[in-house]
């Protein structure tokens, strides 16, 4: 295939547009923001194009730019999502009461066998949709920790929360994800845990 054609920025949209959009959407959970992030990524890519060394495929190079756009967006969005501290205390108390100390209220077991599900191709679309459905502040915390690998310090700074409260958001995100997967992944018969 013609290298020049492959690398022509005008072909980026057709070649990588939807891929990058899906990458941004599952992290930002907002169509307009994800589309803007893709557009900004392409424009930044054109500007930085002479620095592209062709060592990585252009898709991953663009994705690296998009990663920064995603984190930038979250930084801005976090200013508008004030995490109410009183609410956090309430969550902490509820968490303690609900999940621990009372033997009958252990974390509920999986309703399907994750190891089996992870081997099914169809499972990953449900996983994608459930991650894309996480609610605001817990979704953003989940994106930064689990999908973008930021540290506790960075996340707390960006989300303006106390380090002591991050784990609550992450716990709730995981619980919501689990619930969503259980509601949408139909366990084939005979594989229940």
């Amino acid at each position: 295939m013609n290298d020049k054609l492959l690398h022509d920025p005008e072909s980026w949209l057709d070649e990588h547009g939807d891929y990058l959009f899906r990458y941004a959407y599952v992290r930002l959970r907002n169509r307009a923001a994800a589309e803007d992030a893709v557009q900004e990524t392409f424009l930044a890519g054109i500007k930085a194009y002479d620095r592209y060394d062709e060592k990585t495929p252009v898709r991953y190079w663009l994705r690296g730019i998009l990663h920064h756009k995603v984190v930038d967006y979250i930084r801005k969005a976090a200013r508008e999502i004030a995490v109410d501290d009183s609410e956090d205390h309430e969550i902490l108390d509820r968490f303690k009461y609900k999940a621990f100390g009372i033997p009958s209220q252990q974390p509920a077991p999986w309703k399907f066998d994750p190891k089996h599900a992870y081997e099914q191709k169809e499972f990953w679309e449900i996983f994608y949709r459930c991650m894309a459905g996480l609610k605001e502040s817990m979704g953003l915390a989940f994106t930064m920790r689990e999908l973008e690998g930021l540290s506790t310090e960075e996340i707390c700074k960006e989300l303006r929360i106390k380090p002591n409260n991050l784990w609550v958001l992450l716990h709730r995100a995981r619980a919501q994800l689990k619930e969503c997967l259980e509601a949408h992944w139909i366990t084939p018969e005979g594989t229940e845990q």
Binding site: P9, L13, G17, R22, V38, Q39, F42, E125
Partner: peptide, 20 residues
């Protein structure tokens, strides 16, 4: 290899194409 039926809207695609 995960391809949810989710893609750029036609408006966004057109807007980005023009920008490019």
């Amino acid at each position: 290899d995960i391809t949810p039926t989710l893609q750029l809207s036609d408006e966004a695609r057109q807007r980005i194409a023009e920008k490019l």
